[in-house]
């Protein structure tokens, strides 16, 4: 017979509604990054539900695999595709949203009423008996006896998935990679000779060697090309003239 302690009930009534609210938020926020963060929160609440339900191993695996690996992967892909790639929330198929929400409300209502009407015919047992040797030990016993074939099959699936990802992500070159010689020739044939030798580094000829100070050319004028375009666009460029030495004082003070 399973009795649920008050702390678990409190945790459930706090985290359960929060996870559902976060899931709804996932649907309505515009940016994919915000959706990913809300999903990470839902994953963590589900991990806490697992731990509260005597599935300690699965709870830890949930945090490590989902919030650790899977969400990181999602964020990587978001960065590759572009964080600013926000979803347009306009309907492309007319009436789709209304139909989808109606159908989902019907489906959710069906699920909820089904769960509330279904009766198991006996009280919930709880995992105290099954976990008496420890949750991990109990799972391992099952995994390496009754489910060992499924376990092997799933390992084959993992290897196949890794191979599939490599095949899909492989990028075939359509033209040969230019060699260093070809690059050098192209630099001199196209473009001006002035830029062929490369741009000057910032601050090399100036008195100040920070990256936001333009270098001085041999004739004493600052070279704006030596500053990164980002710094220039942000307006973070300093005047190299403010670091000028002025007239060099060659007179040696006589010591008396």
């Amino acid at each position: 017979m399973l009795t649920i302690q008050t702390p678990e009930a409190v945790m459930f009534w706090v985290l359960g509604p929060l996870s559902v609210i976060a899931a709804i938020g996932m649907l309505v926020v515009k940016k994919a990054v915000h959706s990913a963060l809300l999903l990470a929160w839902i994953m963590i609440t589900i991990a806490l539900f697992y731990i509260a339900q005597d599935a300690v191993f699965l709870g830890i695996v949930q945090i490590v695999v989902y919030t650790g690996a899977v969400m990181m992967l999602f964020l990587f892909i978001l960065m590759l595709v572009g964080v600013d790639a926000s979803d347009s929330l306009t309907e492309t198929i007319p009436g789709l949203r209304a139909i989808a929400i109606t159908a989902a409300l019907g489906f959710g209502g069906l699920l909820v009423s089904l769960i509330s009407r279904a009766a198991l015919g006996r009280p919930a047992i709880g995992l105290a008996e099954a976990n008496k040797d420890g949750n991990v030990q109990g799972l391992a016993k099952l995994l390496f006896s009754d489910y060992v074939f499924a376990f092997e099959a799933i390992s084959a699936l993992l290897i196949t998935a890794a191979l599939g990802a490599m095949v899909l992500a492989h990028h075939q070159r359509t033209v040969a990679r230019p060699t260093q010689r070809e690059q050098a020739i192209a630099r001199f044939r196209t473009g001006s000779l002035a830029s062929a030798a490369g741009l000057p580094n910032p601050g090399v000829y100036a008195r100040h060697n920070a990256v936001d100070v333009p270098a001085l050319l041999p004739d004493g004028t600052p070279a704006p090309n030596s500053i990164s375009a980002t710094l220039k666009a942000r307006g973070d460029m300093l005047e190299s003239s403010q670091f000028e030495l002025g007239e060099v004082d060659n007179t040696v003070q006589e010591e008396k």
Binding site: A23, M26, A32, I42
Partner: peptide
């Protein structure tokens, strides 16, 4: 509820990720 909300998301949202 989470399953239902996920199903709505699959139908309604346009961004593949």
């Amino acid at each position: 509820l989470l399953f239902t909300i996920g199903a709505i998301g699959v139908i309604v949202r346009r961004n593949a990720i």
